[in-house]
C-alpha cells in the first residue's frame, strides 16, 4: 500500500511570501504544498498538507495521526522553540517525525531560535534550505520508512 505522510506547518507560515521575504523567500505555502505533491508523486507516496496557527489544533492533529499516516514532517515555526505540548504530542504518535525549518535557525540573530524543544523527539532535523527543506524531508522520510 502507498505510504501516506502528514505535513504540518505551524503559526504564521500561512503568511509565507508576504512577510520577511529576505528570510523566508517569496513563494507561498501553497507553492510548497504543490512542490510536495509533485515530489510525492515521483516517490509514489501520498502527502496531506495542513497549516495551523493554533498550538492546540496541531496537538489535536498529531493525536489523530497514528494509524492514518506513516510519518510526519513538521515545521512548527516559532512553536519549535517553546512548545512542550507539541513535543509530547509528537512523542505520543510513535511515528517517525522530521523537523524542518526554512531558514537556518542557527544563523539567526535571536538566541531563542537556536534551540528546538521538539528536535529530541524527532528522527532528524533539516534547516536552512528554504522551501527545499520540506522536499528533502520527504526524501528522508521515504528513505526511512523503506528500510
Amino acid at each position: 500500500m502507498k505510504k501516506n505522510f502528514l505535513v504540518i506547518s505551524g503559526p504564521n507560515l500561512n503568511l509565507l511570501g508576504t512577510r520577511k521575504t529576505s528570510i523566508y523567500g517569496e513563494g507561498s505555502l501553497e507553492d510548497i504544498h504543490r512542490g510536495l505533491q509533485q515530489r510525492a508523486k515521483e516517490l509514489n507516496v501520498s502527502v496531506e498538507c495542513k497549516q495551523f496557527n493554533s498550538e492546540g489544533a496541531i496537538v489535536d492533529c498529531l493525536q489523530e495521526a497514528p494509524g492514518r499516516f506513516d510519518g510526519v514532517i513538521i515545521n512548527a515555526g516559532a512553536l519549535a522553540h517553546y512548545s512542550y505540548a507539541l513535543r509530547s504530542a509528537i512523542g505520543a504518535t510513535l511515528l517517525p517525525c522530521v523537523e524542518v525549518f526554512i531558514s537556518n535557525v542557527y544563523a539567526r540573530e535571536e538566541e531563542f531560535r537556536h534551540k528546538s524543544v521538539i528536535a529530541p523527539v524527532c528522527v532528524g532535523v533539516i534547516s536552512g534550505f528554504g522551501k527545499k527543506s520540506y522536499l528533502l524531508a520527504l526524501d528522508a522520510l521515504v528513505n526511512l520508512t523503506e528500510v
Binding site: 522530521v98 537556518n104 542557527y106 544563523a107 524527532c122 528522527v123 532528524g124 532535523v125 533539516i126 534547516s127 536552512g128 534550505f129 527543506s133 528533502l136 526524501d139 528522508a140 528513505n143 526511512l144
Partner: peptide
C-alpha cells in the same frame, strides 16, 4: 551551523545524500 547554508542530522548515512 551559523556559517553553513543549513544543517541535516539524524538520517544515518542518508544524511549525506540529503
Amino acid at each position: 551551523a551559523p556559517v553553513c547554508i543549513g544543517q541535516i542530522c539524524g538520517f544515518g548515512a542518508f544524511s549525506y545524500i540529503v
